[in-house]
Simulated scan of single mutants.
Amino acid sequence: MLLELLQGGDSGGFLLIQDTANYSGRHLLKSFINAALRRDEEVHVFCFETSEEELKEGFQEVQRLHIHNAYEDPLGWTKKAVFTVQQFSLNDLTRVIKLTPHQKTPIVVIDSLSWVLRHVCTTAVCSTLHQLKKGGFVRAIIGLLHADMHQKGTVGSVRHLSTSLITVTPSIMGDNCQAKITKRTKSGKVLQDEHTFSIKEDLTVMLLKSSNTAPQQMVQEEHEIDPTANLTFNLRLSDKEREAKEKLSLPFMFSKEKKKAILHSGANLGRILYEPDANDDFDQEDPDDDLDV
């Protein structure tokens, strides 16, 4: 599945590369950029953590690579920045991209989303990514996220927007990398795969080991909790208890004899009969004595 994603099979989606301090996903991000350039794609890279010189290292074709430098002055302190983190919005992103004429719908690469999330609220970032993905102005979005820099809620919000997620971790096989891939299809299915790979000097990916997982229906990431699991009483009935329950006569269910007596019309129809018992203390001279007035 990794080679399929590198070949541009995730058109119109949002591909998220998630890494930690244990292993950097920047080399894999550059492999996706390199693969897109070899397909003659127009690629716009918004750099926040990498300089332009460092980003271009290893690329043989840079004619269709458009770099928007937010690395030198990301907060706009010098007032001369090409792009700042405060400009991470749909209007500013599209404005900057439209400054370059394109023959094809471009691909947007964000290096990295973690830097943006440190200075812009999560809601605004997710809203911009969603609008950019659904607007049809770009072919695809590729982003890098450092998961150990954020709270789980922030990471989960960004992951929820992605159509393909690649989580990179160090492999036990030398200096290689292990990638866990989750791809959500338009039909609602989830495809999962695991790869052990290495990245060559020319930024091409070489697969060393693959473990395919059959497609499965969309499931919740967290297991459903049974609310009756740890109760101190039983909510379910045994066969004997269910049989006794069915034989029980409820107070609002009348027998045939009682129904016949109630529905029987006679001379005393509509009369109310009261028979006082021994506990009644009724004073004929003062009927309102019990009202305490």
Rank of each mutant, 00 (worst) to 15 (best):
L3G: 06
E4M: 02
E4D: 08
L5I: 05
L6E: 01
G8Y: 08
G9P: 03
F14A: 10
L15Q: 01
L16V: 13
I17R: 03
Q18D: 01
Q18V: 14
D19Q: 01
A21F: 10
Y23D: 02
S24T: 11
H27R: 11
L28G: 00
H44P: 02
V45W: 04
T50K: 03
S51F: 06
E52L: 11
E54N: 15
L55Y: 00
E57Q: 14
F59Q: 01
Q60K: 06
Q63L: 11
R64Y: 07
R64Q: 14
I67G: 08
D73E: 06
L75W: 08
W77Y: 10
W77G: 00
T78E: 14
F83R: 10
F83W: 15
T84L: 04
V85F: 14
V85W: 14
Q86C: 12
L90K: 09
N91D: 10
D92P: 03
T94A: 07
I97T: 06
K98E: 07
P101T: 11
P101G: 08
P101N: 06
T105R: 15
I107V: 09
V109Q: 04
I110Y: 12
V116M: 09
V116R: 12
L117P: 07
R118G: 04
R118M: 11
R118P: 00
H119I: 03
C121V: 06
C121A: 10
T122V: 15
T123D: 07
L129E: 01
L129W: 11
H130S: 12
H130K: 13
K133P: 01
K134L: 07
G135N: 11
F137E: 04
A140V: 03
I141G: 05
I142T: 11
G143N: 10
L144Y: 08
H146M: 01
D148T: 04
Q151P: 02
Q151K: 14
G153L: 15
T154Y: 08
S157R: 15
S157I: 07
S164M: 07
L165A: 03
T167V: 08
S171W: 06
M173L: 11
G174T: 01
C177I: 06
I181P: 01
R184Y: 03
G188H: 09
V190E: 06
Q192H: 13
Q192I: 11
D193K: 10
E194F: 09
F197A: 02
K200G: 07
L203C: 02
S211R: 13
T213Q: 13
A214T: 09
P215I: 02
Q216L: 08
V219F: 15
E221H: 10
E222M: 09
A229K: 13
F233M: 09
L235A: 04
D239T: 10
K240W: 05
E246V: 11
K247Y: 10
P251A: 00
S255Y: 03
E257R: 03
K259C: 06
K259H: 03
K260C: 08
A261W: 05
A261N: 06
L263C: 12
S265P: 08
S265N: 15
A267M: 07
A267S: 10
N268K: 05
N268Q: 04
L269Q: 12
L269N: 11
R271E: 00
R271S: 00
I272S: 09
Y274P: 00
E275L: 14
P276F: 03
D281T: 07
D283P: 01
E285G: 07
L291H: 00
L291V: 05
V293Q: 05
V293F: 12
V293I: 09
